[in-house]
Design a protein around this nucleic acid. Structure first.
Lengths: 246, 246
DNA sequence: CAGCGGTTTTGACCTACGTCAAGCGCCGCC
DNA sequence: GGCGGCGCTTGACGTAGGTCAAAACCGCTG
């Protein structure tokens, strides 16, 4: 399309096409809660976006940290690679969520990969640091976002450390549901962008187990699954999976 | 001892007794890498320390976030409580490490509990925020500390999500060893301050399994254990536990 | 120093989940 | 529009780690 695509296929940049002020994900993203005045001032932080095709990475483990990425559209996973080559998926991310914070102060620790054709806003870290010195509201927000990632991680530890397989999958589905809802999508019907294997890796299970659990949930009337399409039929029932069998 | 102890048994405060500049844990703690000049400026941030007796909490899940805590001496765990009352230990912490960052921007998400009589420096968050606006080096350091916690958490996810029981325990022991070493203690001989159950909770295992693994490692000549006393006899062998059986 | 509660060890048995294997469906490509 | 490959499902079977139980040990307290 544009000439720039031909010369930089892996990192097509688009300048000033969308401002935070006009972005519908604003209230989920880094600038959430900022005054319109402050918003103006940080517009030059978000100086570029980047298209990432399905399967491509936004950043790679070990490479120099320069920016965090705010998801403008699409869906990502982050993962770590074991010495032996085993993958551990550390999270799934969607519009308005921030990626790459594990790199702050050095190199990215994990890798961020698009699970569908996506777009991410590039937030150069040096600029964020600078601006957050001048705009206390941004500083507070940045710290809140970092803390939220820590809290999320602790939740995953709890999931991996002390839940049984069906509790893990129920938690996972309820979490996705809630996040889709906040973004204005149906909380009860959505498309999984990740494979059974990726779900399994994230939940500490094998893909066969994930598949079996999907089937079991369907048999129990909790959900309907057909490949990547999921419909939640009984959200209370799903929540019940967590409470029961303590 | 002091009158203040009698009136505030749970939170004895001691003002200006130790400065960061003279603290031997400085280079592991929040002010690591700061110039002596900057150090001076942040002295008034660390305005108090607090004694915490074994079993007491420094902060509780759900209570209002006011400060992060830097461990001056002793040993802590942080943990989360499930709806059903199941505990998930999210980490163990020792001198120079920071606690309570999961509370930033609201309420503490987990609980921090001393595993032996300990002392922690109280770092009021409002002050840190303010100072880090004025001292870029402090800001950078704060962000690095937050990012390190995220990286640590991802490491735990990998451990819980894709390692087998013996790999988890070996990783755990090697990690403790390294951290003791950095603090000038023996890397090969130390005292576990947590119970088998707490180790198990952290590693996603049951206490019986932890106990059996300790015995197995001992039989294999990797370590010597006697209750809470551990001596690492073959650190390469322990590392080998990770590589092997992929 | 005897008694006691909490912690650890060890054994016997069980089960949730993993492994291995076969077959199917969906989707993109020629 | 048929072919090939990846992803998903399902079954049969194996096993790592959990559960239950008993006994030893350790450090306290009285």
């Amino acid at each position: 399309m544009h000439a720039i695509h031909a010369s930089q296929p892996a990192a097509a940049l688009k300048k000033f096409e969308v401002t935070c002020a006009s972005c519908n994900l604003r209230e989920l993203c880094l600038p959430a809660g900022l005054s319109t005045e402050d918003l103006q001032r940080i517009e030059n932080v978000v100086y570029a976006r980047r298209r990432v095709k399905r399967g491509e990475s936004v950043f790679k483990a070990g490479s120099e940290f320069k920016a965090v990425y705010a998801i403008r559209s699409g869906f990502f996973k982050t993962s770590l690679l074991d010495n032996d080559g085993r993958e551990q998926v550390t999270g799934f991310f969607m519009g308005g969520e921030l990626l790459g914070m594990d790199g702050i102060g050095g190199a990215y620790h994990g890798t961020g990969i698009a699970l569908e054709d996506s777009e991410a806003c590039i937030l150069p870290y040096a600029l964020i640091e600078e601006m957050s010195r001048e705009i206390p509201a941004l500083q507070r927000r940045l710290h809140a976002v970092l803390a939220r990632e820590i809290v999320r991680d602790h939740g995953v530890m709890m999931l991996l450390g002390s839940m049984r397989a069906e509790e893990r999958l129920a938690t996972f589905l309820l979490n996705l549901s809630r996040r889709f809802q906040r973004r204005g999508y149906s909380p009860s019907e959505f498309h999984l962008r990740m494979t059974r294997e990726e779900i399994g890796s994230f939940l500490g299970l094998k893909l066969e187990t994930v598949s079996r659990l999907f089937s079991a949930f369907q048999k129990d009337g909790l959900i309907e699954v057909q490949q990547k399409h999921v419909r939640i039929r009984d959200i209370d029932g799903l929540q019940g999976v967590l409470a029961a069998k303590s």
